[in-house]
Amino acid sequence: MPHIKKKHMQIVDSSESYEDAIALAAKPLLDDDYITEDYIDQMLESIEKFGTYIVLADEFALPHARPSEAVKKTGMSLLVVKNGVDLKNNDVKLFIVLAAKDSTTHTEVLQSLASFLMEKQNIKDVINAERVDDIETILEKRLK
């Protein structure tokens, strides 16, 4: 199952805005040619259009947009903002960017992510991790 690669994970102390945080969270996917710049714009537009339901749990957001030509390869990236950033009145510390090339290939990944997110402690443990290696270990063990 295509999990989040360690090189696609980042930890920072703070971020100026949720727009900056989402752009930073998506940068590894941009650099590795999973997505184009357009996809970042589309993710931000979808928040304007549809609201903040991408904040799926306390302190967690799943920025994404619909499958499009802006996605070349299905993938996910992760960003922890230690001090949190405001996403329209939600304090978000963990971002997982979802880039889906079509509406089926990522289903399995989302199902395991859904189970992972229902355990609030899992989100807390990722946020509290000191290094990306620790996040990788947590995800390897619990994201099944």
């Binding site: 979808s46 339901y53 991408i54 799943l62 979802l98 509406s103 289903t107 199902q111 189970s115 229902m118």
Partner: peptide, 19 residues
């Protein structure tokens, strides 16, 4: 239901099923 029917609604579906 979500905006695109690909990401968030799938997550919600799983949570409803668990409930």
């Amino acid at each position: 239901v979500c905006g695109f029917g690909v990401g968030s609604s799938m997550i919600l579906k799983m949570t409803i099923q668990k409930a």
